[in-house]
């Protein structure tokens, strides 16, 4: 076993709010330069760029974990992670059915580009992505678990789109796999304590929307290899696995 540097929350140019620079070569070469072993691709309510990043990742030797940043009915953001493209595509199909039938307004929200592994723009996605799905947070977690994925509550130290901000605390009986903190905000000691008491571990990820928002390693997983089962074990401190964050 060894420590692997993980950044489990990264956007691509498919997220309307992300910069055009979030294309496979730029993101992956920079991540590699920083010494990151694995990146999770987590666009808002979609995974359509995951395949291209996985292909490019293979070329460059950076592991890509397929994922999505889901927005629930409560406007809470949840990082959903899977092992395979197949699971992720199944999940995306379910999520698309839970999106309101609205079109993106790129003047207000930004452009949503699907890209191939060689950074070529393939097509624009015209669904409105920056919106809450009709999933309640409880139902979303259950559905991801059914597909053998994991759920991590995104940026709980922020007010906006966060489980903590919108629901005040972690609802009892919500079986999250972990929570995420941002690299920059000062840690709220009371919140950290409460989260520990609930039995949750936390990761730190960059939530990068621009290439230079990708951070030097902030979060390590001590594991046999990088996959969902191992990350799950590390989040539960099982069998010698653990998550270590810089702060």
């Amino acid at each position: 076993m060894r420590e692997w540097a993980l950044d489990l929350h990264i956007h691509t140019l498919l997220s309307p709010c992300a910069d055009d620079s979030m294309i496979p070569s730029v993101v992956l070469e920079y991540a590699k330069e920083l010494g990151i072993d694995a990146l999770a691709i987590t666009d808002h309510n979609t995974s359509e760029n995951v395949a291209s990043f996985m292909e490019k990742g293979k070329e460059l030797g950076v592991k890509i974990i397929p994922g999505m940043e889901l927005q629930t009915q409560e406007d809470v953001h949840i990082i959903c992670l899977f092992d395979t493209l197949r699971q992720t595509n199944l999940w995306q199909e379910i999520v698309y059915k839970k999106l309101p039938p609205l079109k993106n307004s790129k003047e207000y929200f930004g452009e949503q580009w699907i890209v191939n592994k060689d950074d070529e723009l393939v097509r624009e996605l015209d669904k409105l992505l920056l919106v809450g799905t009709s999933f309640t947070i409880e139902d979303a977690v259950e559905a991801v678990h059914e597909l053998k994925g994991i759920c991590i509550a995104a940026h709980v130290d922020k007010q906006a789109f966060s489980l903590w901000g919108h629901l005040g605390y972690i609802p009892p009986g919500l079986f999250l796999d972990g929570v995420e903190f941002t690299p920059f905000l000062p840690r709220n000691v009371k919140q950290l304590e409460q989260i520990k008491n609930e039995g949750y571990n936390y990761i730190v990820s960059s939530d990068a929307h621009h290439w230079d928002g990708i951070q030097a390693p902030q979060c390590y997983g001590y594991m046999e290899e990088i996959n969902i089962e191992e990350i799950k074990k590390a989040l539960r401190n099982e069998e010698g696995r653990y998550i270590r964050t810089l702060r």
Partner: peptide, 20 residues
């Protein structure tokens, strides 16, 4: 809810669209 927890007062009637 975090904001409501910080600012609402005992005895208030609370208006919301949050249904969780």
């Amino acid at each position: 809810l975090s904001n409501v927890m910080a600012n609402a007062q005992a005895g208030d009637i609370w208006f919301t669209v949050q249904t969780h």
